[in-house]
Design a protein around this nucleic acid. Structure first.
Lengths: 208, 208, 208, 208
DNA sequence: AATGAATGAGGATTCATTCAT
DNA sequence: AATGAATGAATCCTCATTCAT
C-alpha cells in the first residue's frame, strides 16, 4: 500500500547494507586473503563509504571474522542437501562427498580464505582464523559421526584417523583444483577419495 | 698485522648480505604470506636498510620469488637422503614419505608460503607463485616416476590419479599439522598415507 | 497499577540525558582537553548515541562551553561556604583560601580544563575558552573586592597587582598539585599563599 | 672548490630536515597542544611530506618529545646569561627572574606546550609529558640551589617550600600573560615575584 | 657493495556532523 | 526526546620504491 519510493532504498537500511558489505568482503577476501583485503577495496565494491563499514564492523578483523561466519553458514546450507540417506553405505558416503565437492566448486571462497588464514602464523592471530578453525571443527565432528554411524565396529582411534585423513584429502584436492583450475573434476576426485577412505575404514572395522 | 678477518667483516660481503636478507624474508613470508611481508619488516629482521634489499633484489616480487627458489632447494636437499632403495617397494615408499614428512617438520616455511601463494588469486600473479607451481610440478614428476618404477603395470591414467592423490594427501596432512601443531605426528601420518596410496596403486595394477 | 516509575525510566527524560552527557563530557574534557574530547568518547561514556548529543547541543563547541559553564557553577557552589566572616582579616582570608583549595581538590576538572583552553591559541577560539575567561574574571573581581574590603587603604593599582598575584599563585599551586599528585597538601599551600599575599598587601597598605 | 649546485640543497640533508620539522612542530604544538598538532599540519609548515617526518621520528609521540627536549635546551640557553653574579643577593635574584621572564616572552612555546601536556591526564601518558616534567625538575633544582646559596641559613624544608612557591608563581604569572596578552609586563611581575619570595625566604632564614 | 634520506600512494581508522525516522 | 545509519574529511602511520652519495 505505502508506495516504496526509490529514494528510501538508499537510506538507513542496516541489514541490507551489512549484507552488501559482507558480499563485497567475501569476494575480495576469498581471492586475496586477509592482508590483501583493503577496506578501500571493499568500500569501492559495495558502494558504501569506508566509514560506513566501521558502523557495521568494529574493525577489519571483525569484518573478516564475520565473513568467515557467514560464508560457513552459506556453505553448510549448500552442503546439507536431502537424499543422501538411501542406498548402501558406500553410495551414501560417495553422494555426500559429491555434494561437498559441488559446494566447493560453486562457492570456493569459504575454504580458500579459511585455508589462507589457517596457514598464517602471525603473532597476533586474527579472529577470523579462530572462527574458521572452530567451524572447521564442527564440520569435522560431522564426518566423525558419519563414520561412527556407517562403520559401528570401528574403534574410536580409527574413527579419528579416518576423519583426519578424510579432511586432509578434501583440503588437498581442493588445493589441487585451485591450482589447476576448472579442468579438474573435483566431484569425481571427491567420490574416489570417499570410496578409498570408506574402504580403508571397512578394512579396519572388520579385519579378515 | 691487519688480520683479514676484521676487514672481511667491514668489507661489504654481497653473498653474506643476500643470505641474511633471504633468511629474514623466509621467516616472515613463511609466517605472513606475500602481502604480509613488508620490506621494512625484512629490513628490521636482517639488520640491513631497506635500500640495501633493493640492491640485491629488483623488487618485492623478485625477493619473494628468490625466497621460494632458495627454500625449495633447501627442502629438496633435506628430502633427498640415501638409503631408500632397500627393502620391499612398500618399505621404500614408506621410508620416502617419512623423509618428506621430516623435512616438512624441520622447514615448513617453503610449503606454507607456497600454499598461501597458490591459494591467492590476485589480478597480477606474483612471480613467486609461478615459481612455486613450477618446482611443485618437479616434485610431482618424481612421485609419478616412483609410481611408474614400483608399479610398472599401472596404466598412465592411474599413475596420474595416484600422484594427484598422493600430493593432495600430503598437502592436506601438512595443513592439518600447521593447524594442530606439534602434537601431530606428521611422520606417522605420512607413512600411513604412503601405504594407503601404494596399496591402492597395487590393487589398480593387478586387479584380481 | 502502572507505577509512574517504570515509565519515567523509559520515557525520554531530557534533563536527565543532558546531565549524563555533561557528566561524561566533564570527565573526558577535564582529562584530555578540547581536541582530546571526541563525541564518540563522550557517547561511549554516557551510554547515549552520538546523535543524541547533537539533540542536546548544537555542536562540540557548544558542548564544551556548557561543560565549562556547569562545572564553574558546581565549583562556585563548593567554594561559597559560610563561616568565613569571623576572626581577624588574616584568618578570614586564610579560611577562604582553604575553601578554594578544598574545592579544587574535590573537583579539579573545571580549572584543569579551563587552563588547558586558556593556554591554547588556536585560530578559531573555542567558545569554551571565552566562557572560561569570563567566569574566571568573575572570580577575580571577588578577590579584588575582598582585598578592597579587608585592606581599605590599599591603592587601586596595588589591589590589581595583589589580585593578579593571588590568582597566579593559585593557578601555579594548582598546576603543582596536578603534576605531583595527592601527596601535595593543596590546602596548606593555599593557606600559606593567602598569608603571604595578605601580608604583602598589609605592608603596601601601611608603609612603615 | 666543488661548486654547490642548487639542487643539492633539496637532497639528503638529514640534520637540516630534522631541524625544519622540529621548527614547524614547535610552532604548531606550542599553539595547539598535543592533539591539536597534526602531522599533516607539520608537514605543510616544514615543506616535507608526512612520510619524511616518520623517517626522522618514530611517531607523533616521539616528535613531541623531541620538541620538548629541543625547546627546553633553547630556553635554557636563553635563560643562562652572564652578569647575574654581581650586586646584593636580592639584586641578583631579581636579575635572574627578569632573565627568565624575558626568555618566556621571547620563546613562550616551551612552557605553554609543557603546561598543556602537564595538565592532561590521559591514561597512556605521552612521552613528551614525561620529558617535560623531567626537564622542569632540572630547572627546579637550580632554583633550590640558588636559594641554598643565597640564604644559607634556610632549613631544607623551607628551601623546598620556597622553591615550590617560586615555580608556582612563575607558572601562574606566565598563564596570566598568555591570557591577557602583550599588555602584561611579565618582566616587572617576575621581578616583583622574585623580591616577594626572596624576602619571605629572608624572614624564614633569620627569624627576628 | 651499500645506505641515509626522501617520497607519493595507500593503509586502517576516527572525526564531527547530518538526516530520516 | 531521541537514534540508527550514513558520510566526507581528516587522523596517524606504513607501503614499496628511488636516488644521490
Amino acid at each position: 500500500m505505502t508506495s516504496p519510493n526509490t529514494e528510501r532504498k538508499r537510506r538507513a537500511n542496516g541489514v541490507e547494507s551489512r549484507r552488501r558489505i559482507l558480499d563485497a568482503a567475501v569476494a575480495i577476501a576469498g581471492e586475496r586473503g586477509y592482508e590483501g583485503t583493503s577496506i578501500a577495496a571493499v568500500s569501492a565494491k559495495c558502494g558504501l563509504p569506508a566509514s560506513s563499514i566501521y558502523w557495521h564492523f568494529k574493525d577489519k578483523d571483525d569484518l573478516i571474522a564475520a565473513v568467515i561466519e557467514r560464508s560457513f553458514e552459506t556453505w553448510l546450507a549448500a552442503v546439507e542437501l536431502p537424499g543422501e540417506d538411501a542406498g548402501t553405505p558406500l553410495e551414501r558416503v560417495t553422494a555426500m562427498a559429491a555434494n561437498v565437492a559441488r559446494s566447493l566448486v560453486d562457492t570456493p571462497d569459504f575454504l580458500r580464505l579459511g585455508l589462507m588464514l589457517a596457514l598464517e602464523q602471525r603473532p597476533s592471530e586474527p579472529r577470523g582464523r579462530t572462527v574458521f578453525l572452530q567451524v572447521r571443527d564442527v564440520a569435522r565432528q560431522r564426518i566423525a559421526d558419519i563414520a561412527r554411524t556407517l562403520l559401528p565396529e570401528l574403534a574410536e582411534a580409527d574413527v579419528q584417523t579416518l576423519t583426519t585423513y578424510a579432511v586432509a584429502g578434501a583440503d588437498g584436492l581442493f588445493v589441487h583444483r585451485e591450482i589447476h583450475g576448472e579442468a579438474v573434476d573435483l566431484v569425481a576426485m571427491f567420490e574416489l577419495h570417499a570410496r578409498m577412505v570408506f574402504e580403508a575404514g571397512a578394512r579396519l572395522a572388520s579385519p579378515a
